[in-house]
C-alpha cells in the first residue's frame, strides 16, 4: 500500500534529496508533502492523513524540536512516526526530539540505504 509522507526542511534541495533517497530505497508513496519550516509542517499535518514525517532540526520560523513538540497536539499526527534528519551531531538535541515523540534520527550525510533501513520498519512496508 502506498504511503503519504511529509518532508520538513528549510532547504528545497535537501527536501528533494530526501524524496529521491526514499524512492531510490524502493519505497513508493502516494503523495509527498513538503514544508520549509515547522509552521508549514504543522499546517500540512493538521489537514492531511500522513504515514511518515521526516523533519530537519535546524530551521527558521519554527525549528524541528518545536515542530515535533507541537505535533503532540495535532489529532491527525497521533501515532504517525517522526524521524529527524539533521546535520546536528548533538545527542542532547536529538534526545530532546525523541522526548517529544520522534522515533529516531538520520544524520546527514546519509545514503539511500540508511534511509531505507530506518524508514521501512516504521512504515510496516
Amino acid at each position: 500500500m502506498k504511503k503519504r509522507v511529509l518532508i520538513v526542511d528549510d532547504s528545497s534541495v535537501m527536501r528533494k534529496i530526501v524524496e529521491k533517497s526514499l524512492r531510490q530505497a524502493g519505497l513508493e508513496f502516494e503523495q509527498v508533502f513538503e514544508a520549509s519550516n515547522g509552521v508549514e509542517g504543522l499546517a500540512v499535518a493538521q489537514n492531511n492523513k500522513l504515514d511518515l514525517i521526516l523533519s530537519d532540526i535546524n530551521m527558521p520560523m519554527m525549528d524541528g524540536l518545536e515542530f515535533v513538540r507541537s505535533l503532540q497536539g495535532v489529532d491527525n499526527a497521533k501515532g504517525v512516526p517522526v524521524v529527524m534528519i539533521t546535520t546536528e551531531g548533538s545527542e542532547a538535541r536529538v534526545m530532546e526530539a525523541i522526548s517529544f515523540g520522534a522515533r529516531g534520527y538520520i544524520r546527514k550525510p546519509f545514503t539511500p540505504d540508511q534511509v531505507r533501513e530506518y524508514v521501512t520498519p516504521l512504515l510496516g512496508a
Partner: peptide, 19 residues
C-alpha cells in the same frame, strides 16, 4: 547545504564539540 553538512560532520568528529 554542503557547507552545513561539512560543518555538522566536522564537529561530530571532535570530542566534546558535537554537543
Amino acid at each position: 547545504e554542503i557547507c552545513n553538512m561539512v560543518a555538522g560532520n566536522f564537529k561530530a568528529k571532535i570530542a566534546g564539540l558535537a554537543d
